[in-house]
Design a protein around this nucleic acid. Structure first.
Length: 804
RNA sequence: GCUGGGAUGGCGAAAUUGGUAGACGCACUUGCCUUAGGAGCAAGCGGGGUGACCCAUGGAGGUUCAAGUCCUCUUCCCAGCACCA
């Protein structure tokens, strides 16, 4: 037999599959469908390393099995190609970012193609393609129409040296990563999306999703629903009121002071009553220099300043208590003000200790509880007021809020940690926000017929220096007539963040060429939702929240048929470098898939990456271990020699059907490592057989085909088949073929295995007991002892309990 | 600190969900074959002991005829969130 030459085989079949359009999805809705999707990549200039394809190999194997099981499979790939690196490349090389994007996508596609994926390339999409971003802009227009987009001055990280805005990840210790200048907060006019309006629905619908529990948990925490109350504290001798947010209104009687965030505007409004205003302003300035992380760092010494001359009145008991400005309270959470209950809150406790403020206990504290700590648990109310004392915290909360509500001093509210989404960037390489500013008409949407608003050609892609987008400098692009009144208008120069395209791209694969609609609703009804979505766990709270928000919005305006985009989610674990670090150019530890494919073959790479360990776990690459899967394929290749017409299938049927079950079940649950080990066990067994029937060997090939599509296709054709193995039917599992006539069972005495016997599978308990008790080894252990109990576990073991 | 996930041979790991711990693969050892081998084949491979046996799933207890798996306490590692009122 000829040698297994992966180079010849892989190239040949890839060309053949492509030519035949073997993996093209059809819109034939009479067949059950399976929409399998990878989180699409950002085509970076560095190319793929060996870790990138891991998730793609998984979806590839999964979708191939689904196809063989009779599903109409949609598996396509695209490029999330807007974003900073392409823009920076453009600035540096003075070329259009498109040049970098085209170069990188071509390279990525080449690298992917040699691995032999079953992508339907007819459906390839690119977020930077005007035909695509037309719809990204269209969604924004719809959100604008529905009042979900609003303008707001939001601070950006501004580097005064580079004259540019920076993302959080470009900061190091509050300094610009590139020039080390301390970064300032600069308010910019921004577009913000009201994602918080969908917070409750996103929370509720989480339950029904077949997602990893950890991802659901992080989304829950990210949305961060907390039920509490807003309570009004009047200011003495003033018409002003401080409204605080609290989740513990039950502790209201323990409030001994009130704290405002230093940036809270109320401070300015109270200025005339504050006798030490200059100190307060100095503190505010000081607090500005600290990042939120610094301000909120664990165990940090509390700072703050008292607003001299200001007293707040506790609406529950009319007690007058002091007011402070302190940076442990954040301006952008709750109302930017808290009532401090030092006896029952950690932060208030340490602040009160430092500033020598009274600590009043209003929840009964267990005796064993240390005296030098606040008691933050729920408990029984005490020291409050007659009708409240003795109640449980949980009940007291609604009682007290109800009472105050009646007086107009409190109301129950639900707060979210989730913030509205700052949706604009002051950059060139993003989708232009399709709005026009008109002095007369205000903000006017670009008419749908005029979409897409194309990115103009510019001289320089560098930021404008004012913080505005480079687009602001292109007069002929900016100045357009107002669509409403025809007067002078100016285009919005902010662009969208990279998330915009990735928040809905999965819908476009369904109907990539549609120029009349984002997606045809009938096709969408058939293909949605995505049945299996695979990507890194790092997208748990950003991409996956944004996409769910977009999808729910599209559902509300009737574009899609279902409320959720991704029915099932699997996380891919990272592949680390052999040294245990992340693969990176910086460490020089990058393994390139092209090299591995060249040396060992795509099938070996695929098999190895799936065999390395549990799919969602991170593992280190091992150059040494990859030969295992290669040897395995060689053995499968050689096994072809055993195929004979005179073979007795019965001798191998049990092994075969065990594998059919295990491989199918494991691919379904993403247990690829054990699926492959089951295939190895099968090959080990088949090698022991004298000869193999063609059918047995073909079944092995079909089971292996999802992982190793090229070698199996080659061997399949060698056997005389003329159609592709990837369109063959997945074998059916026949339980009766796995039934064995004899089984080995273990014999334990007092919990220790002492012997084992082979019995007929259908032997009854009494027969087994008598055989077991007669065994010399067992007699040795039971002699002279009283047999207390004999437990027979069918098909497994016999356990004998003896005692004196 | 909170939440989630982990800890099993020299290494990656498996274990039917309470039933013979270490499947499968890598590395390693021995032998065969070969002019040669980063090839192939055969056997071995958790630790201790000549052996009968004993010990072993981060550690300490417990439940059970039986625990990697369940319970209590504890140590360490990874990821995410973090003074959220």
């Amino acid at each position: 037999m000829r040698k297994y030459d992966h180079k010849e085989i892989e190239k040949k079949w890839q060309t053949e599959w492509e030519a035949k359009g073997l993996y093209c999805a059809s819109d034939d809705s009479s067949k059950p469908k399976s929409y399998v999707l990878d989180m699409f990549p950002y085509p970076s200039g560095e190319g793929l390393h060996v870790g990138h394809p891991k998730g793609y190999i998984a979806t590839d194997a999964y979708s191939r099995m689904k196809r063989m099981q009779g599903f109409n499979v949609l598996h396509a790939m695209g490029w999330d190609a807007f974003g900073l690196p392409a823009e920076q490349y453009a600035i540096k090389n003075k070329v259009h970012p498109r040049v970098a994007v085209d170069k990188n996508t071509t390279r990525f596609k080449e690298q992917l193609s040699i691995i032999g994926f079953d992508y339907d390339w007819k459906r390839e999409i690119n977020t930077t393609d005007p035909e695509f971003y037309k719809w990204t802009q269209w969604i924004f227009l719809k959100m604008f129409e529905k009042g979900l987009a609003y303008e707001s001055y939001e601070p950006i990280n501004w580097c005064p040296t580079c004259q540019t805005g920076l993302a959080n990840e470009d900061l190091e210790d509050g300094k610009c990563e590139r020039c080390d200048t301390p970064v300032e907060k600069k308010p910019m006019r921004q577009w913000v999306l009201r994602i918080t309006q969908y917070a409750d629905r996103m929370l509720e619908d989480l339950d029904a999703l077949n997602w990893p529990a950890s991802i659901k948990e992080s989304q829950k925490n990210w949305i961060g629903r907390s039920e509490g109350a807003e309570i009004d504290f009047k200011i003495e001798n003033s018409d002003k009121t401080i409204t605080v947010f609290t989740t513990r209104p039950d502790t209201l009687f323990g409030a001994t002071y009130v704290v405002l965030a230093p940036e809270n505007k109320l401070i300015d409004e109270l200025a005339s009553s504050i006798s030490n205003m200059s100190d307060v302003l100095a503190y505010r300035e000081d607090a500005k220099s600290r990042t939120e992380i610094e301000r909120t760092a664990e165990g940090k010494e509390k700072t703050g300043v008292k607003l001299e001359g200001v007293l707040a009145i506790n609406p529950a008991n009319d007690e007058k208590i002091p007011v402070f400005a302190a940076d442990y309270v954040l301006g952008n959470y709750g109302t930017g003000a808290v009532m401090a209950v030092p006896a029952h809150d950690e932060r208030d406790w340490s602040f009160a200790k430092k500033f020598n403020l009274p600590i009043k206990q209003v929840i009964e504290t267990p005796e064993f509880f240390p005296k030098d700590k606040p008691y933050t648990e729920d408990g029984i109310i005490t020291n409050s007021i007659v009708w409240l004392d003795g109640l449980l915290s949980v009940d007291a909360r609604s009682e007290i809020v109800g009472e105050l509500e009646y007086k107009g001093a409190a109301k129950e509210v639900v707060r979210y940690r989730l913030k509205d989404w700052v949706f604009s960037r002051q950059r060139y390489w993003g989708e232009p926000i399709p709005l026009i500013h008109c002095d007369k008409c205000g903000v006017v949407p670009v008419p749908e017929a005029d979409l897409p608003v194309m990115l103009p050609q510019v001289e320089s892609y560098a930021p404008s220096g004012t913080g505005e987008s480079p687009l602001a400098n292109i007069a002929e692009w900016v100045n357009v007539p107002c669509p409403k009144c025809g007067g002078a208008g100016k285009r919005e120069t902010n662009t969208m963040p990279q998330w915009a395209g990735s928040s809905w791209y999965y819908l476009r694969f369904i109907d990539p060429k549609n120029s009349d609609a984002l997606v045809d609703k009938t096709k969408e009804k058939y293909w949605s939702p995505v049945d299996m979505y695979v990507g890194g766990a790092e997208h748990a709270t950003r991409h996956l929240i944004y996409a769910r928000f977009y999808h729910k919005f599209l559902y509300d305006i009737g574009v899609v048929n279902y409320e959720e985009p991704f029915a099932r989610l699997q996380n891919v674990g990272l592949i680390m470098a052999e040294d245990g670090r992340k693969m990176s150019k910086r460490w020089g530890n990058v393994v390139n898939p092209d090299d591995v494919v060249g040396e060992h073959g795509a099938d070996t790479l695929r098999l190895y990456e799936m065999f390395m360990g549990p799919f969602n776990q991170s593992v280190a690459w091992s150059t040494q271990s990859i030969v295992g899967p290669r040897r395995f394929l060689e053995r499968v290749w050689k096994l072809a020699e055993k195929v004979s017409e005179s073979a007795n299938e019965k001798t191998t049927d049990a092994a075969l059907h065990k594998a059919i079950k295990k491989v199918g079940d494991d691919i379904e649950t993403f247990g690829f490592n054990t699926a492959i080990s089951a295939l190895m066990i099968l090959v080990n067994d088949l090698e022991k057989a004298e000869s193999l029937s063609k059918h047995t060997y073909e079944t092995l090939l079909v089971l292996l085909a999802p992982f190793a599509p090229h070698i199996t296709e080659e061997l399949w054709h060698e056997l005389g088949n003329t159609t592709s193995i990837h369109l063959a039917s997945w074998p059916a599992y026949d339980a009766s073929k796995c039934v064995e006539s004899e089984i080995t069972i273990a014999i334990q005495v007092n919990g220790k295995v002492r012997d084992e016997i082979v019995v007929a599978a259908d032997a009854d308990e009494e027969a087994i007991k008598s055989i077991v008790l007669a065994r010399p080894t067992i007699v040795k252990w039971t002699e002279g002892e009283e047999i207390k109990k004999i437990i027979v576990v069918k098909g497994k073991l016999v356990s004998i309990v003896v005692g004196e």
